[in-house]
């Protein structure tokens, strides 16, 4: 699996991520939370080889990530970023088949095989997009489109899923749908996921580990119950929070206390 060892990333003189380590385990979901500018997205890009760390290293199955060909990384690591740029009309199916790119034999136009179609059809059904497969991406609603982006990531068959705010701009039900699908992939296969989110309650409910970051540094790492404490959250977000147990699931439930009303 994927492992980051004391990774440091700089943008010019500014340190974006400082000596962060993270080891992913199969069947586990890790949530990264922290205020804006904490270096969460930068860490995610470094995990995917999109940035070179100035020190430390990223290992994929024990080998440095930089020694892999781009196409090979595409078969091991899938990224769900925020919305795709859709200036040209593409159908949902064509979009999802993009996830099979890294599996194509090079050259010769790279036509999809029957297996590619089968995989695409499977993930489209998992994400409940099968009926929409012939529709254009820009005709979809926000929730459907985000599911299509996730479907494309699932279509890569990658063992590592990196998701950068996959639930931003989605309503309550769709947030849960996306994370349930990711959770399902981790549970059923030898897969691991990293999810950046601003929703601490979603992190508490869906993740096995939480990485709490501030100013590019790791503040805490561990199971949600150990990391999502009033003290740590107050230190990182500089707001007072109330943490109690969710009455149904028992996971930590975080409620900010702004003190506007008494």
């Amino acid at each position: 699996m994927l492992e980051a060892r004391e990774v440091t990333i700089k943008y010019g003189p500014r340190v974006a991520v400082a000596e962060v380590s993270l080891k992913l385990q199969a069947h586990e979901m890790t949530a990264i939370i922290g205020p804006n500018g904490a270096g969460k997205s930068t860490l995610l890009r470094v995990l995917n080889g999109g940035h070179r760390p100035v020190s430390g290293e990223i290992l994929l199955d024990g080998r440095p990530l930089s020694t892999y060909a781009r196409r090979t990384i595409g078969r091991h690591i899938a990224v769900v970023a925020q919305e795709a740029d859709l200036r040209f009309p593409v159908t949902v199916l064509e979009f999802v088949l993009g996830g099979r790119y890294a599996w194509a034999s090079t050259g010769a136009w790279g036509w999809e095989t029957q297996q590619d179609i089968q995989v695409a059809d499977d993930v489209l059904r998992q994400t409940e997009l099968a009926e929409l497969s012939g529709r254009l991406m820009n005709e979809l609603s926000g929730g459907e489109r985000q599911r299509a982006v996730l479907a494309r990531a699932l279509a890569t068959d990658a063992a590592v899923l990196l998701l950068d705010e996959p639930t931003a701009n989605l309503d309550l039900a769709h947030q849960a749908t996306i994370l349930t699908l990711v959770r399902g992939r981790c549970d059923r296969r030898e897969a691991a996921a990293v999810v950046i989110t601003h929703d601490v309650n979603l992190a508490a409910e869906f993740s096995d580990h939480v990485l709490l970051m501030k100013d590019g540094r790791t503040v805490a790492f561990g199971p949600p119950a150990e990391v999502l404490t009033p003290e740590l959250l107050r230190e990182v977000f500089e707001v007072r929070v109330l943490v109690d147990a969710h009455p149904i699931t028992g996971v930590p439930r975080i409620t900010p206390v702004h003190g506007v009303r008494r």
């Binding site: 995917n48 999109g50 060909a69 781009r70 196409r71 090979t72 990384i73 595409g74 078969r75 690591i77 899938a78 990224v79 970023a81 795709a84 740029d85 859709l86 200036r87 040209f88 593409v90 979009f95 993009g98 996830g99 790119y101 890294a102 494309r152 890569t156």
Partner: peptide, 14 residues
Amino acid sequence: LMLGERDAFDLGVE
């Protein structure tokens, strides 16, 4: 690449 250089990179395009 029509869907963005970053997306293409993530999916394995050099």
